[in-house]
Design a protein around this nucleic acid. Structure first.
Length: 824
RNA sequence: GGGCGGUUGCUGAAAUUGGUAGACAGGACGGACUUAGGAUCCGUUGGUGAUGAACCAUGAGAGUUCGAGUCUCUCACCGCCCACCA
């Protein structure tokens, strides 16, 4: 009688978690002879709890790291916390707790939960961005950008809530342009802010040669950077008796003869100069109205075109035409020159504008072979990429494919324009009028102006206690101890910059600090960079496709040029996980009431079951619904496997004898290793688990047969334990020891397979007639084509389908099928 | 409006990348064991037909092919991202 040990995760899991930590199993040593594998997952914001999304993300991630470790890599798999940001500040405002206290308490709780997950975190390398030993270096980095001319201060628009009397982050502005807290209409206000010159790297950021990323993410970054080639063309006007030039950017310089109006963005500095006294009132009213609108409203395509005539005119440099100057909010100050030439015949937006304000429309590009059109009857702009220039003076007849270059050359010769590349990408605004962030290490001296804090004085400490007032400025401004200081140059009284940095700055370099987390002399050493960077594989949400991932790339390139790094790209390979949805297939949200916390399921089934379930939901990048019922399937599988191994490992004779059955098991072993290895390598955790379930079912079926006492059978079980280890680390560790091993399974060597041995001795030959399956025959794998033909053609069932028809063609796919093509 | 991805049983999904559609699970139904089962084990489960033969079936329609879930075109839904970028 066999006494079965029941699988009890509550006993097994904490036991191994403790042991692993004591043995520092997951610490990646700097001095390992093994090849390094830097395996990174986007660090969490310490909101207080690990939710379903974290589990869904980290379970497969960790499984992959374990898989690589078993394959002989020195896997560095760090974790930390992106700990600055608004929620802590809100907690401080609403509940009166210190942001620091709140954040650190959350981190403590999340550390516990992260440990319970049993993932192989290298806790030695933990970074917490809100602690001085980290933000000191964030500040230091800012100084390096400043020194190299990549950080500058200028007036920039901020979202301003007149109700709360404060600036808002973009996320705090609702899609309809109102404040999420008080519902007031959010305005834009110009204030002094710091920016980083990411645009200096626009061209290099468009080069993705060194990275293996999802095509989708690359496309998004490419679109975000938005490179356009075209021309800068300078129009001119008399301003106070002097001829002054004003540039526009266009991708279609060949349409310049069709420019019947000219539009300035409402914020354009020329508006002031060109507006006539009669129009001043109308123009000012329009500007005022535009300011009240948020970016989002302004950018809505649905909106009808609006604008006001300034009363002024500019001269078209190619034909001397006097063109009326308007202002309109569809022209954006942040793009190109902030001014456009309006060519209504060939641009839909200009067309709509011209129609609304009765501006003439002149056709200057005509599709090849078409008759002259009457623009009065047009209902939309004719955007022509393949035609000839008309109504364009000496250029008439020039085909479009030559026209752009030809006109550009002419403009250059005349000294009124030039070839130009423009990017949509704007410089990165990093000032936040907030308390809970890394201080910007700048001092303003009445004598010496903007002075960087000397490096040896870093960090600029962030006080623990601040007063929150709703003035729209950083709370730090009202902390005399913080703000009042002395000028580093003259020692006279001076004030500190009170704004803090965007938290995206903190997350743009954390992966560098992981490699050298305890360095108190430097942000990192070149030695550790050479050892660990770049990141070999990065896993995180697709929502960071643009901002975070672009900023991190910019940081690496800029720091490389400053001499602090010796590589070009931070993340060699990138993988995006999907999103876990509620059981109803909807995004989990409190308002839908479909939020599930993982904790109770971990408590009921254990970590391994929840981990495996997360991987079994479906393809990792696709996401899926969390359905508690389905946990049962994994739970049963783990229990059945546990019982099988326990039942098999009883004292008794084990036979080395080879039988057809034992050979079949050995074949299954190689096949299973192959499937699991290939699946894990390609992030297909769901099918890797399915392969193990199939193997488990096959083994259970035979557990009372004589073959169960062969060495091959036991070897198969041992292999299965190893193959499952990355996904279910605790139960497999327990079984590994039960089956007589003393090392950790997670440092054991990944089983290898022999493809030849994985091949079946027999296979099911499918016989088709005209592409339809008519018969299945078991045949030996070594069968020859002529044997297959003979077998198929003489098969009685097949013969009835061939009947009187003549065989035209026979297609044979070795190991699969034979298709007999017949015609009556 | 633009870009990308998706649509396969009751449900999550799989399909050797052009070669047996529905692996592996969940659920449901039936059975065994049991005082009991929300434990465990066994069986059935795409549709029409009768349990056989056969036919139909991967969002819809066409095409290429000996052969299409997979490739091409048209259309319809769904999701995500971007969106007046000159």
């Amino acid at each position: 009688m066999i006494t079965r040990t029941k699988y009890n995760p509550k006993e097994v899991e904490p036991k191994w978690q403790k042991r692993w930590e004591e043995e520092q199993l997951y610490h990646a040593p700097d001095n390992s002879p093994k090849p390094k594998f830097y395996h990174l997952v986007m660090f969490p914001y310490p909101s207080g709890d690990l939710h379903m999304g974290h589990w869904y993300n980290y379970s497969p991630f960790d499984a992959y790291g374990r898989f690589m470790r078993m394959q002989g890599y020195n896997v560095m798999q760090p974790i930390g916390f992106d700990a600055f940001g608004l929620p802590a500040e809100n907690a401080a405002i609403k509940r009166g707790v210190q942001a620091r206290t709140w954040t650190l308490a959350n981190i403590d709780n999340m550390r516990k939960q992260l440990r319970m997950m049993g993932a192989g975190w290298d806790w030695e390398r933990e970074v917490v961005t809100c602690l001085p030993d980290y933000y000191k270096w964030t500040e230091w980095l800012f100084l390096q950008f400043y020194k190299h001319g990549l950080a500058y201060r200028t007036k920039a628009p901020a979202n301003w809530c007149p109700g709360c009397n404060t600036t808002l982050a973009n996320e705090q502005v609702l899609p309809d342009g109102t404040c999420e807290r008080c519902g007031s209409i959010v305005e834009r206000r110009e204030i002094d802010q710091w920016l980083l010159k990411i645009t200096a790297y626009a061209e290099e950021l468009l080069n993705f040669d060194e990275i293996d990323w999802p095509e989708k993410t690359i496309t998004m970054q490419r679109n975000w950077i938005g490179r356009s080639e075209g021309a800068e063309i300078r129009f001119s006007a008399e301003i106070e008796g002097k001829r002054e030039e004003i540039p526009v950017f266009t991708t279609r310089p060949d349409t310049i003869y069709g420019a019947t109006f000219f539009v300035l963005a409402p914020e354009h500095p020329w508006v002031e100069k060109i507006t006539t006294p009669e129009q001043r009132a109308a123009v000012e009213a329009y500007i005022d109205q535009a300011r009240r609108m948020t970016e989002i409203e302004r950018m809505s395509t649905e909106k009808e075109k609006t604008g006001v005539f300034t009363g002024g005119y500019v001269t078209n440099p190619v034909n001397g035409a006097q063109v009326p100057v308007w202002i309109a909010d569809y022209v954006l100050m942040g793009y190109g020159a902030g001014a456009i030439m309006g060519v209504p015949a060939h641009d839909q937006r200009d067309f709509e504008f011209a129609r609304k304000f009765n501006i003439p429309i002149i056709e200057v590009i005509r599709p090849t072979g078409e008759e002259p059109g009457n623009t009065d009857t047009w209902t939309e702009a004719h955007v022509v990429h393949d035609g000839i220039m008309v109504n364009s003076g000496t250029f008439n007849g020039t085909p479009t494919d030559e026209a752009i270059a030809k006109v550009t050359r002419y403009l250059e010769e005349q000294g009124v324009g030039k070839f130009m590349v423009t990017y949509r990408l704007r410089d990165w605004l990093i000032s936040r009028q907030r308390y809970w962030g890394a201080p910007i290490p700048i001092v303003y001296c009445p004598e010496h102006g903007t002075v960087p804090v000397p490096e040896e004085q870093l960090p600029v400490w962030l006080p623990d206690n601040v007063q929150f007032k709703s003035t729209g400025e950083s709370p730090l401004r009202y902390e005399p101890e913080f703000v009042n200081t002395t000028c580093p140059i003259c020692g006279g009284p001076a004030t500190r910059e009170a704004d803090t940095m965007d938290t995206f700055i903190c997350s743009s370099w954390y992966f560098l600090r992981y490699a050298d987390p305890h360095n108190s002399e430097q942000a990192w050493s070149m030695e550790e960079m050479t050892r660990w960077l770049p990141v070999d594989q990065y896993v995180g949400g697709a929502e960071h496709a643009v901002m975070h991932l672009l900023y991190a790339r910019f940081f690496v390139k800029a720091l490389r040029d400053m001499g602090y790094l010796n590589f070009n790209e931070p993340f060699k390979r990138l993988y995006h996980q999907g999103m876990v949805l509620g059981a109803d297939g909807q995004k989990m949200s409190k308002s839908r009431g479909n939020v599930e916390a993982p904790d109770k399921y971990v408590d009921k089934y254990g970590t391994d079951t929840v981990r495996c379930y997360m991987m079994f939901i479906g393809p990792f990048d696709q996401g899926g619904s969390f359905k508690p019922d389905n946990l049962e399937g994994i739970w049963r599988f783990l229990n059945r496997f546990w019982s099988l191994v326990n039942d098999t490992w009883v004292p008794g004779r084990v036979s080395e004898e080879e039988t057809p059955e034992s050979r079949a098991i050995e074949r299954l072993r190689h096949k299973t290793i192959q499937r699991v290895t290939e699946d894990l390598a390609n992030f297909r955790f769901n099918t890797a688990l399915a392969a193990l379930m199939e193997a488990n079912n096959a083994m259970i079926k035979q557990q009372h047969e004589p073959v169960a006492r062969t060495a091959a059978y036991r070897r198969m079980l041992e292999t299965m334990i190893q193959l499952l280890a990355p996904m279910a680390p605790h139960i497999t560790e327990e079984m590994w020891h039960l089956t007589g091993h003393s090392n950790s399974i997670h440092t054991s060597e990944w089983p290898i397979y022999d493809e030849a041995l994985a091949k079946d001795e027999i296979f099911t030959l499918v016989v088709q007639v005209n592409g339809k399956v008519r018969e299945r025959i078991e045949v030996p794998a070594t069968i020859s084509e002529s044997e297959v033909r003979a077998l198929a053609l003489t098969n009685p069932r097949v013969a009835t389908f061939i009947g009187e028809s003549t065989v035209q063609k026979v297609i044979y796919v070795p190991g699969r099928l034979i298709n007999i093509v017949v015609r009556k």
